[in-house]
Design a protein around this nucleic acid. Structure first.
Lengths: 360, 360
DNA sequence: CGCCGATATTAAAACGTGTCAATAAAATAA
DNA sequence: TTATTTTATTGACACGTTTTAATATCGGCG
């Protein structure tokens, strides 16, 4: 414990040269190899010497230089996490899960943003390759696996997050069933009597959005509605509140009589923007329009009315990804696997039964 | 550019042994030193050989091993960022600023959570010491500088974020004037005629909270009110929405007739929780109670009513911190400095003039 | 007494890179 | 031509660690 409290020792590090394993060895009257053993396999060294070495470590305030050990072992022990944007609360929850799980193993996490741009994703993975990262947890920006294949060829294993179409032989993946999520949201809306729903999508190239839409359409068919008539799609530029706000204009484009009864947003961030935009135009939620989001970020439960949304186990997603990565790093007989979580509909105040004759 | 696109080359990395600077040298018919020069000081190597080496690099799909170079140089080139909690949107904005600025210099950022616990902060800094991080940006959990002093003694420079009481000789700091923020909020409320304000604080040990409270009290005196009568303090357990929600009970504890006219929260997160708690008890904002937050996180503008709050230049905070750190790393004649930003009051719908006779 | 196995310790050799001093080659000056 | 400077290249070492194979120590057993 004394070495855990950095300030406890007077730190004679001002001896001039930095203190390494050799200085410790000299100070303890022992060889460098023994010091290394104390650090890595304490059971192999006799009680007495071990204590002497530990004393020297504390007294000299020695802290291991991981560059050295990484060089020797050919691998760093930190892991990379590549997300679209740290600023998005969905990702931060996931990140937190990854970090906590990594911390359990004493690993540091290098956090990189791809900004949903291929070039940045490449740069990030390249950086991890340079660092010889132990592994990576990646949320790919699209289904082009070239970068990831390249990384794996360099013996850096990874786990793909939130993207299902990874060949099982390439690596593990952790996903949430987006189709099921869309389906649940759709059933809920249709159950409330809505038959004109606008899907506020992010860029349609994003697989998650497409699948959620699929789910919504499936719910229509299930409910005896023609998806092509019941569902209209509005594509927002980005998955953030501002884009949601801007999308409102398009949602209402058809004039009051063609106004949809509900908006299902690909994202809570979008949904929050939509809520705001509707409010500014004097439309009431859920009176005039029901709104459903996706993710169940913290604030979804804080706004008024509370946002009905499809919850994803964000933190668990991150933890699970890290767990799989750990398995691949530690278990000799590791087999890649796809882990799929089920989303869960959380009903709050932003959805209500359709009024038979909407306010005209 | 060809080497920037990882997948472009067929990658003969399957030659058995990993390809290092030596393999490249051999393949280009040149010495290892020359390859190193091509990588680090291209101007010192002749046009022809340089191209030959670059060809070999591309062909062998070589990527530098930073363990090696870090070991040699005694320093890693990545920088550490220690925040309280990635999950808090305030920190993510700051983090984004740091990351972007770091990316400009090609540096990676190791993100660590301290969870506001001394032990975790120590662990984080220790980890950075092990990595021989180039530097760190730290939001300290309290005013105990022992950890940071220790780190600096190990030649790892840092910039302190959001905490003003750092001796100028120890290192740079970037802060926002919390007193001014509290003052601005206080003036606003008093200007609206409120004379019973509850300050919803986080743990009072946190300097930021204390200063903001000071500012509020100063505003009272300025307005001819006795701070001890006009301001009541409620201490929430943590700076998150849940704590805010729980604090509502205490805010209203005095019964309807002693109900405050306004709540000034140390944090937007707290404020959001307070808004929710009030809503659930049927109280209207701002009709029955005005609410002010602090930080101006994204959602502050999205909830209804919009949250009046004290905005901090979060992203700029992060960028500035990284810029100072860079200066310390690069400029030989660096002098530590304190950078102080001014907060700005953003008035939205959650505050309104006091009713002369509150709803009784 | 000599031998054995077990236990503790260590010398030495990597790992991949950057830098310094030294050499080779070429260009310029004399 | 030779002497001198400039320009390109290189050999060799150091950085701090881990690991392998070898050595030293010791108690016990034949």
């Amino acid at each position: 414990m004394s070495s855990a409290d950095p300030a406890a020792t007077p730190s004679p590090a001002t001896d001039g040269r930095p203190v390494g394993i050799n200085e410790v060895a000299a100070h303890a009257g022992v060889s460098a190899a023994t010091v290394s053993n104390v650090l890595n396999r304490p059971e192999r060294v006799a009680e007495g010497t071990r204590r002497r070495v530990e004393g020297a470590i504390a007294e000299l305030d020695y802290v291991r230089n991981s560059s050295g050990s990484n060089l020797r072992s050919g691998r760093s022990d930190s892991i990379g996490l590549v997300v679209h944007d740290v600023t998005n609360p969905f990702f931060t929850e996931v990140a937190r899960g990854v970090q906590d799980a990594a911390a359990d193993e004493g690993r540091a996490v290098v956090l990189l943003n791809s900004d949903e741009q291929a070039a940045w994703q490449s740069r990030s993975l390249r950086l991890l390759a340079e660092q010889r990262a132990a592994g990576a947890v990646v949320m790919p920006i699209d289904d082009d696996m070239a970068d990831l294949l390249w990384l794996r060829k360099r013996d850096t294993p990874w786990v793909v997050l939130d993207r299902g179409d990874v060949g099982e032989d390439l690596g593990c993946s952790v996903t949430v069933d987006n189709h099921a999520g869309g389906l649940a949201a759709g059933r809920h809306l249709i159950g409330l009597g809505h038959d004109r729903v606008t899907f506020v999508s992010g860029p349609l190239g994003i697989e998650q959005c497409a699948r959620r839409l699929d789910g919504l359409r499936a719910a229509c068919e299930e409910g005896g509605l023609d998806p092509d008539r019941a569902v209209r799609v509005v594509e927002a530029a980005q998955l953030n509140p501002r884009s949601g706000e801007q999308a409102v204009e398009e949602i209402l484009a058809g004039g009051p009589r063609r106004r949809p009864q509900a908006a299902f947003c690909a994202n809570d961030q979008l949904a929050l923007g939509v809520l705001k935009g509707l409010g500014e135009r004097g439309l009431r939620v859920p009176g005039d329009l029901s709104v459903v989001g996706y993710d169940d970020v913290d604030v979804a439960g804080l706004v008024h009315p509370g946002l009905t949304t499809v919850a994803q186990p964000k933190y668990e997603l991150g933890r699970a990804a890290m767990r799989l990565l750990h398995s691949e790093l530690a278990d000799a007989d590791h087999r890649h696997q796809r882990l799929r979580f089920e989303p869960e509909l959380v009903v709050r105040g932003s959805t209500a039964p359709a009024t038979t004759h909407p306010t005209l």
